[in-house]
């Protein structure tokens, strides 16, 4: 990807993330300077507790940064009106208590809320978008089904369809491949690649499947020891970032195959 500088859409400037409490700030990661562009599939990796979810929540405007800025399309995201953010950035989360009584069509239609009137009436454009995203995610045949009838893999695709219906330039996903078997992981990863490359969107997702991320992402953000590094997977391997990713000697990284081995 060589149009990195021309299509910058999400910029993190000197960003510190974490939580505020009465006792003071609990900093999880600081001095984060990253520029992300349209048309890229970016993976976010780091061990448990490294701050992947906190970073994604901050980037989505769900949580305020401790300091620094997260700039979405030229404005700091935490100062933007929620309805404005919802037209520029969509989010796919795991473990949310969504109503399983919703039909797939109803769920995906909710993605159009940023554009509909006060009653949520769908226009021709909205219906066209919904039809398109159902086709793109290969879920058209499921549209009359209720969410409780879906498998985990199907539900994940439908949730991604809902985010696509929001028609935003950026999409952020929190561990979209967790709890899925390899077949479904591959299908989600292919879908995300397609969204990033064919629809020219920024797709940023966190994952524990580091080997898959190394093989498929355009760029990887590695969160480690309160710092964030971004680069292409190839460069990160050369720099030896993965050799020190896990703290103990239980796991070693084989740079030739791009795989982790249990020693």
């Amino acid at each position: 990807m060589d149009h990195q500088t021309t299509h910058t859409i999400l910029t993190l400037e000197n960003l510190s993330i974490g939580y505020t409490s009465k006792k003071g700030n609990a900093v999880i990661a600081s001095d984060i300077d990253i520029e992300l562009s349209k048309g890229q599939l970016v993976g976010l990796i780091g061990i448990n507790g490294a701050g992947k979810s906190t970073l994604l929540r901050t980037l989505s405007g769900l949580q305020n940064p401790l300091s620094g800025n997260c700039i979405l399309d030229q404005s700091p995201i935490h100062t933007m009106a929620p309805e404005l953010v919802s037209r520029k950035l969509s989010v796919v989360l795991t473990g949310q208590a969504i109503s399983k009584n919703l039909s797939v069509l109803e769920l995906v239609s909710l993605g159009r809320q940023p554009y509909t009137n006060w009653l949520g009436t769908l226009t021709e454009t909205d219906i066209q978008t919904i039809t398109d995203v159902l086709t793109a995610t290969d879920t058209s045949h499921l549209k009359e089904k209720k969410c409780y009838e879906l498998s985990d893999g199907q539900l994940q695709r439908v949730l991604i369809a809902r985010a696509m219906a929001q028609d935003t330039a950026s999409m952020i996903l929190d561990e979209p491949m967790t709890h899925l078997d390899l077949h479904h992981k591959a299908s989600i990863l292919k879908l995300l690649t397609k969204i990033a490359h064919e629809q020219q969107k920024l797709v940023l997702f966190s994952t524990h499947d580091i080997e898959l991320a190394i093989a498929h992402c355009d760029q990887l953000i590695v969160l480690q020891n309160g710092k964030a590094t971004i680069n292409t997977p190839k460069q990160l391997i050369q720099d030896g970032v993965f050799d020190t990713l896990f703290p103990s000697d239980n796991v070693t990284f084989d740079s030739k195959s791009g795989r982790f081995l249990i020693s």
């Binding site: 989360l93 969504i98 006060w118 009653l119």
Partner: peptide
């Protein structure tokens, strides 16, 4: 009736509702 849209968004839970532009 004025809350129909936020109510529908809330079916996805608080966090999703926020990302859909609902003033929570």
């Amino acid at each position: 009736v004025a809350s129909i849209k936020p109510l529908n968004a809330l079916l996805l839970g608080d966090t999703y509702a926020k990302t859909l532009g609902v003033k929570h």
